[in-house]
Design a protein around this nucleic acid. Structure first.
Length: 607
DNA sequence: CGGCTTTGACCAGCGC
DNA sequence: GCGCTGGTCAAAGCCG
């Protein structure tokens, strides 16, 4: 975390992430800049067709009006330039004028062949009215035609840039306003939730809600659904910091132990169902446990909206989530995808049916963090890296790590909340499909038949609505367009973008599910659980996320803002780290590892 | 020297 | 019960 650096995307202190981009637009002439790709992901970026020599790359277009030019070939530059100018000019200058103007400019420098004459043309068609030096421009015409054109172009560019800057400022203000409103709403909602909780209960829960210095601080999204447990976890860690971490027990399971006790205290649930015991293969019975006749099921029988029968369900979800897995498939040459967390490899095994070894990592950002991940290359396509996450972090996360944590947490919750609502895994998948489908192109797969509930987020698929499930019983949910080259990028920003998108959508799905389950519950505010409240708030976020123009900007900004509530996140900066940057990501040199316990002839140079 | 990786060993679950 | 497999442990070695 302290080793941040390398590739990063910074929001400004106010969290105006996307709108900050125009400032640096001219700094990345090539498309391999992550910022650039990021901007393209959400469809909010209109064009990247400016010639390298042009200094007017208006890539960021929140109006998303020029997407069609994204793939413009060089031959389309003429029209593309016209579109650029459409930012400020009245719509549609006649094409024939454009052609004639550009034809006369063929003799100019190749880099400027598109922009120079067109800009000059633009000046003549009135854009120059935006400048304050029109008269001087005209005087220059008398002296030297070429010099005049140059100056005109420069001044026009200046005017255009100034106008664009102004526009961006306005949009920035608007977005800031929206974010502030969202923030205020969130705080109000959180306060209301705390009040309700205090009214309903007292004692430990009350203390938990205000346990962080007594003040209610907006938590990051990831914690919303699990606020109580998360608080407990943090309290556990902080209270045990003084003593050495005892690995002789169940290593890394302070959180689980506390969670268990918390569960017992609150629910009186039998340990058998909720104990998270690493020594007993904590991932082995996730689904089965759901079916055991515990008090939870009785509650379910009495109340068909298990998600909202308060804390006990949250506990159960939490416990089950430790068994749920979120698998991310992405093309990457790197040994691991960058998720912002710090990992320590603790094992490597050959898995059946895959010549590539499977590496086991555990989060080392905090002693006792239960989160683990497995990294393995796909047997069929070794360019695909499969990373499987388990558990929830029991410690504050750096901004760069929050996205993936949110992703896994949300996906797991989404899956598990579905399984809690219905014993039919198909419903969950269909539900997920329904709720996540609207803006999608990458895919997610739910495996109901796995030993533990697993959500596979497949970012290797090209957008194709006709894709079929990879295997029976699996369902694929596309995700917002993530360019292939983006995923391929070793400095992939995938976690941030994807994580936020999924998170927002998953939250939204939670709301939908709640509505489907029992609409009457929604009217009863006083009985809302943290999950409900979080879902309600997140529904708004999801709605925003559905807007391709604002999704990325708001997602990043919201993440940065709420992430700022985390103790270890200074300010609202969002640092998206690339593969080579930081946050202590292990860059395992697994290329030297034969990596087999009992099979030693693998020369696979991956994880 | 501390942190990390490597890797053989161990354990538990599961199917036959 | 046995073998297979997945998951984890922990000693040894490496590295900065």
């Amino acid at each position: 975390m302290a080793r941040g650096g390398g590739l990063s995307i910074d929001s400004d202190p106010t969290g105006s992430f996307l709108l900050h981009n125009p400032v640096v637009l001219n700094s990345f002439p090539e498309d391999n800049n992550p910022k650039w790709k990021l901007a393209h992901m959400d469809g909010s970026v209109g064009t990247k067709r400016s010639s390298p020599g042009s200094s007017i790359p208006f890539q960021v277009n929140l109006n998303c009006a020029h997407d069609s030019h994204r793939s413009s070939s060089p031959s389309d530059d003429k029209r593309a330039i016209i579109d650029e100018m459409d930012f400020f000019a009245d719509k549609k200058i006649k094409d024939d004028q454009v052609v004639s103007a550009s034809a006369s400019a063929d003799a100019t420098d190749k880099h400027d062949s598109a922009s120079t004459p067109l800009l000059g043309f633009k000046v003549n068609t009135g854009l120059n009215l935006l400048t304050t030096n029109t008269s001087s421009d005209q005087s220059m015409v008398d002296d030297d035609l070429s010099t005049s054109l140059e100056d005109r172009r420069a001044k026009t560019e200046l005017a255009v840039l100034q106008a664009e800057l102004e526009r961006m400022k306005v949009e920035n203000h608007q977005l800031r306003g929206m974010l502030e409103e969202l923030n205020a709403n969130y705080s109000a909602l959180h306060m209301h939730f705390a009040t309700v909780m205090q009214e309903q209960k007292g004692g430990p829960e009350e203390k938990k809600q205000t346990g962080n210095g007594g003040a209610l601080v907006p938590r990051q999204f990831m914690d919303l659904g699990l606020a109580t447990n998360a608080d407990i976890d943090e309290a556990s860690i902080s209270s045990s910091e003084g003593r050495s971490h005892d690995q002789s027990g169940s290593p890394g399971n302070n959180a689980e132990l506390v969670s268990k006790e918390f569960g017992k205290r609150k629910n009186g649930i039998n340990d058998e169902g909720l104990v998270f015991d690493q020594d007993k293969k904590e991932y082995g019975r996730g689904v089965e446990r759901e079916e055991s006749p515990t008090s939870q099921d009785q509650a379910f029988a009495a109340n068909k909206t298990p998600r909202f029968s308060p804390p006990k369900n949250i506990d159960q979800t939490e416990a089950t989530m430790r068994k749920a897995r979120v698998s991310v498939r992405a093309r990457s040459e790197a040994p691991m995808i960058t998720d912002g967390c710090q990992w320590r490899k603790y094992g490597q095994k050959m898995a059946k049916g895959n010549p590539c070894p499977r590496a086991y990592y555990r989060c080392t950002m905090a002693a006792g963090c239960p989160v683990r991940k497995q990294v393995q290359r796909c047997a069929e396509d070794r360019t695909i890296l499969i990373t499987t996450y388990e558990g929830n972090h029991s410690h504050p996360l750096p901004p760069a790590a929050m996205a993936m944590a949110q992703t896994t947490s949300s996906a797991a919750r989404m899956l598990l909340s579905g399984s809690m609502s219905s014993t039919d895994g198909l419903m969950n998948a269909n539900f997920l499909t329904r709720t996540l489908l609207p803006c999608s192109s990458s895919m997610a797969t739910i495996s109901a038949s796995a030993p533990f509930p697993t959500v596979t987020l497949d970012l290797t698929q090209s957008p194709n609505p006709l894709q079929f499930p990879r295997s029976p019983g699996q369902f694929q949910i596309p995700f917002p367009g993530i360019p292939q080259n983006f995923v391929n990028s070793p400095a992939s920003l995938l976690p941030q973008i994807f994580g936020q998108a999924l998170y927002n959508q998953s939250k939204f799905s939670g709301v939908q599910m709640s509505q489907n389950a029992d609409p009457s519950q929604l009217g009863n505010q006083s009985q809302q659980t943290p999950q409900q409240l979080a879902d309600s708030f997140s529904a708004a976020t999801a709605t925003i996320a559905a807007d391709p123009n604002l999704a990325a900007a708001l997602a990043a900004a919201i993440t940065s803002i709420f992430g700022g509530a985390q103790p270890n996140t200074s300010g609202n900066n969002v640092n998206l780290t690339g593969t080579n940057s930081s946050n202590g990501n292990i860059t395992t040199s697994n290329s030297n590892s034969n990596g087999s316990n009992k099979i030693s002839n693998s020369n696979f140079s991956g994880n």
